[in-house]
Amino acid sequence: MINFLVENQLYIVLIIVLIVWIGLFVYLLTLDKNLSSLERQINTMLNNRENKK
């Protein structure tokens, strides 16, 4: 595996670029998840307020 990568250095570049992509997209996904949980919280809060009225 390592010998293959040493001979074909372009794949090292590929791995590195993929790591940057994966890092940024994992962050985007967690942000997405957090935002949807916030939306759910806001919705429950609004529902509670309506119920109180």
């Binding site: 990568l5 040493v6 090292i12 791995i15 590195i16 790591i19 940057v20 890092g23 962050y27």
Partner: peptide, 17 residues
């Protein structure tokens, strides 16, 4: 910090080869 970690990880793989 996320970008610093990305720079470190990409640098580590670069350093390996």
């Amino acid at each position: 910090t996320i970008f610093a970690v990305l720079a470190t990880v990409t640098g580590m793989i670069w350093a390996k080869f």
